[in-house]
Design a binder for these strands. Structure first.
Lengths: 211, 211
DNA sequence: AGTCGTTTCATACAATCGTCTGAAACTTCT
DNA sequence: AGAAGTTTCAGACGATTGTATGAAACGACT
């Protein structure tokens, strides 16, 4: 039955995303997948290759995102930026997301392993270059590659922060104020920050707080 | 000899920062500290309390930062922001930093534990409120607490990203281009992004890239 | 010098880890 | 139906983990 392998992969993604490679045990994964202990060894060889397969599965099952939204020709780059940031925040914080895909990928980003190179090549770089193309249109005049990269990092850095530091933000703001933050509001904040910084939009300080 | 306890704490910080709580072993810590295995149990009770002590030591030994720079009265908030961001980037990426303090704290931020509350209360919140006060002066007119928090997060998020995603950036940019990034240049980028977004400075796109 | 509390040591223990083995169960094809 | 290949199973292996133990070494004080 092939569903065994799939169930192991799913369970491994969950466990590794939640606890990391070392802390997650093969036994726990097999129990969650309702599969015999030896199945991991049979299907994946060993624990490390199971982990790599889980990471690989995480981003390859998300590559439909890379069929980036096709905008009607002539769509303003401001709107494309807004759409891109909104999609990112939805992926990071949205309710209906596959719960562990992003978490596992971020774990690999934080402490990179062999899987990291393929992850960058097949998932991160396409997104990176797509966003860079949008930003390039927004910057008046010429812009160096390094500078363009910094602008991309400013967008992504703000977005990832809201995911990465969720528990800290909750402690800082309190549960009530934290509850008012939602993906759309945060995306609008990041977008208008960038547009204001690039001189496209009015200043951020004078804008309304979007709920 | 009291140096045993100190050496254990130092070694534990290194190991835990590098490998995390589960992957770091008591034996490795004791070997690095050149201390008998049982010393951990004697001085700290068990592994978990050693970890908490290491996290606590990390931020309490960095609390001299909280004696924030005293600016001459009348210093422009732009310059105070520049100074704050520069200090943050230096702490995150500077050469002469205690290598594991920040890494261990970020680990606790990413997957928070019991130590997290104290870390927020005694280290993160003071920094948070100090930066919030600076930004409040930069925003024209009134600003809600939630909005002010978002602005703080935009600054910190960008800064942490450069630390958190170092290996990814290296893979994305290549070693050569990555090498041109230094704490001062990144701090200047973040600062000017914020100032431009808040309408204090000219647009970011038209600025020179600071090396 | 001798006593007492503190600290360090070598060693052992139970538990849990990843991995392996050989047999049973199942699929597939003739 | 029956043989061949594939998948699953229970159980065991050695290695490594955190922790506990009792004796030895040390330091301070009378």
């Amino acid at each position: 039955m092939d569903s065994t392998k799939a169930r192991i992969l799913e369970a491994a993604g969950n466990v590794f995303a939640q606890k990391g490679f070392e802390a997650g045990t093969v036994r726990e994964i097999c129990q969650l997948a309702d599969v015999n202990l030896a199945a991991v060894n049979y299907h994946f060889g060993d624990k490390r290759r199971l982990y790599l397969a889980a990471v690989s599965h995480a981003y390859s099952s998300r590559q439909e995102e890379l069929a980036m939204a096709e905008w009607p020709p002539g769509t303003a780059p401001e709107d494309r930026l807004r759409g891109w940031v909104g999609a990112m925040m939805e992926r990071l914080l949205g309710e209906d997301r596959q719960p562990w895909h992003m978490q596992l990928m971020m774990r690999e980003v934080a402490s990179p392993d062999v899987a990291c190179e393929a992850l960058v090549k097949e998932y991160i770089r396409p997104h990176f270059e797509y966003l860079a193309a949008i930003l390039k249109e927004l910057v008046p005049g010429e812009v160096s590659e390094e500078r363009l990269a910094l602008l991309v990092f400013s967008v992504v850095g703000q977005g990832l922060f809201y995911r990465f530091s969720q528990p800290i933000m909750r402690l800082l703001l309190g549960d009530k104020a934290y509850g008012t933050l939602n993906p759309q509001a945060l995306a609008e904040h990041v977008t208008s920050m960038m547009l204001a910084a690039l001189g496209v939009c009015p200043d951020v300080g004078s804008e309304e707080f979007v709920r």
